[in-house]
């Protein structure tokens, strides 16, 4: 079932965040995920890979490997990097079909229920999800 080689699974993310009692531990966890996210080389941060948020910038690139999509993403803001890691936990190294079938709204809702973790608020993550799904859709149709 778990064909993913991503560092954490979405289920693990939700369970870990639920385990923490206060915002400080949750944020330290997200920041740690952000620190662990491999950095994109500066030269790689091309204009066409830019996903604009309101207050920070993020970049997203991808390649296909054996029917799965491998994503590479980065941001200039550390918490956004952590939130990107939360998204990639769900999407990285999945098939286009798995990506399109994944219920991201439910995932976000479960993260949001834990309070303080809002992937929707002006940080460009919705735009990144949209781009990931567009990539998956274009491959699924090919």
């Amino acid at each position: 079932m778990n064909a993913s080689s991503a560092a954490v699974s979405p289920q693990e993310v939700v369970e870990t965040l639920a385990f923490f009692d206060d915002w400080e531990d949750r944020y330290r966890y997200i920041i740690d995920l952000g620190r662990e996210l491999p950095a994109m080389p500066e030269a790689h941060k091309r204009e066409d890979l830019l996903v604009r948020g309101c207050q920070s910038q993020a970049w997203l690139d991808w390649r296909e490997e054996g029917g799965r999509i491998v994503f590479e993403a980065d941001s200039d803001a550390l918490i956004v990097r952590g939130l990107i890691a939360l998204i990639l936990a769900a999407y990285d190294r999945r098939t286009p079909r798995e990506i399109l079938d994944f219920d991201i709204d439910d995932y976000f809702a479960r993260l949001d229920l834990l309070r303080h973790i809002s992937p929707t608020r002006g940080n460009g993550l919705r735009a990144m999800v949209q781009r990931i799904r567009d990539i998956a859709r274009s491959l699924a149709m090919a």
Binding site: W23, E24, Y27, G53, C54, Q55, S56, D76, A77, L78, I79, V80, H116, N123
Partner: peptide, 20 residues
């Protein structure tokens, strides 16, 4: 520290500022 990270962590503590 990125301004947005600072703004987010202030918000968690009830302090509303603008970053960007």
């Amino acid at each position: 520290a990125h301004p947005q990270d600072v703004g987010t962590l202030l918000d968690q503590q009830g302090v509303a500022v603008r970053s960007g």
